[in-house]
Design a protein around this nucleic acid. Structure first.
Lengths: 249, 249
DNA sequence: GGAATTAGTGTAAAATTTACACTTTGCTAT
DNA sequence: ATAGCAAAGTGTAAATTTTACACTAATTCC
């Protein structure tokens, strides 16, 4: 990494007192598995809160960037690598960590469960997917962190396309709708959903049909990668799939 | 504040290595002054970057919450107190601070310049408002922090009402429009702006007229505090004041 | 070949968005 | 008093988007 210590020509000693804190990263990994939204938790194998289920997080090294730390920690604790992590915000209540002053930077991601193998090491005894409805009673301030990240996810879903990494390369519109429903935690109207999502123009009709289902097979679509990327990174949109309107006076 | 040290029953010594970092808060205070959007900068009176203009930021104490630190630092450096600060995100590149590993949590606010007196102390030699177009070449990674916060501000303006703390208690629609234009950095259509902003229903027509202007006086409005608060904190909206639409195929 | 199951489709009414230009009001200067 | 100035205030039609809503089509299975 960077050379930090060589980068410290003069630290006047009055500042020494400030250099007694630590920071961690915590990852909220949402997983989708053709139906439900889950979160990846670890069973801690180390103090504090040994043997409790918690968000996969750990200390950041001195010479390590935050984003890199989030990736490393996630990989070490759970085996999940190469995910796109977005920073949400930092939680730093005094007393949130029993060992001293520790603030934590929260990151989230949304991945397809079946694309990753859980492979535990480091301070994790175990790692597993938990239904988002069961996330409560976590140690530290992890409940609060989880909520903040879930809200951010919901917000982002309305501004950017989702699904690229979550669905198979070929998928049906119903599958995509289920994904949105899982994230937004509400049912959507089939016809309106299709109309809107198709009008965003990031789906390509493959002219192929689903196979092996005991009913009328659905058409298969794929994402248009270029258009998806543009919407994701640059343009954004308002995807107000749910009837938002408040009535008039 | 909280009792942190008493809260440290056992910190196994292997962890000591992690407790050698520091964190700071940096505040991006946008100011509005009936016309332009500015940012509050300080001229640093202390290493590193002594004598340079920078964002008002400083170290967080061991026993101080982050939000409290942001308030305290801002008040100490600039005299600006009692502002609502929103956390944006944390910047932690290795090497961003010459004294060692220091990550910084960025906060922003938007205030009315004439409501506050600048009153410098602590490590600031000077503090003053600078046009947002002149913000460049700041020390540390402050340019990047500024950009991130400005983007956040622009995003928030479209989701929440603005102006309560920025305009006089009685103001005209044109004043409010200028505020939006300053933040969004684009001109808006007068008629459409009025239609939209009035339909949000958080303005109250005072049936009074502006005085002392050399032209037709405008009607005065005030905010409906309850409705404003609800929109701000709970409901939110899409205020797409600018013709966003992309044309169709 | 009938039952079951999910896919797929259209429309009319309501609401919102957009683009656009002239009239009104009060003050000021003559 | 009045002419001119400067900004305030106002309306509409066309286009687009949103909403609510229910039946037919395609395939498998028995």
């Amino acid at each position: 990494m960077d050379k930090m210590l060589t980068n410290t020509p003069v630290k006047p000693s009055p500042f020494d007192n400030f250099f007694k804190s630590a920071f961690t990263v915590d990852n909220i990994i949402f997983g989708f598995d053709e139906a439900d939204l889950k979160v990846l938790l670890i069973k801690r194998g180390e103090v504090p809160f040994e043997n409790q289920w918690a968000l996969p997080g750990n200390f950041v090294y001195q010479d390590e960037n935050l984003d890199a730390a989030a990736e490393r920690v996630l990989a070490e604790l759970t085996g999940v690598k190469d995910v796109h992590l977005e920073q949400v915000r930092t939680f730093g209540r005094v007393g949130r960590h029993p060992f001293g002053r520790v603030i934590t930077v929260a990151y989230y991601s949304l991945i397809k469960i079946s694309d990753y193998n859980i492979d535990v090491s480091s301070i994790a005894q175990e790692a597993d997917w938990h239904s988002i409805d069961d996330v409560k009673g976590l140690p530290f301030d992890h409940d609060e962190i989880f909520k903040a990240c879930f809200n951010r996810l919901k917000l982002n879903v309305k501004r950017q396309p989702v699904g690229f990494e979550l669905l198979p390369p070929k998928f049906t519109l119903t599958e995509l709708q289920h994904l949105y429903e899982a994230i937004l935690e509400e049912k959507l109207d089939k016809r309106n959903f299709r109309k809107k999502i198709l009008s965003m123009d990031f789906l390509i009709d493959l002219n192929e049909l689903q196979a092996g289902v005991a009913h009328r097979p659905a058409k298969l679509y794929k994402f248009d990668p270029e258009r998806y990327r543009r919407l994701y990174e640059e343009e954004g949109f308002h995807f107000d799939v749910s009837p938002s309107k408040q009535k008039k006076k």
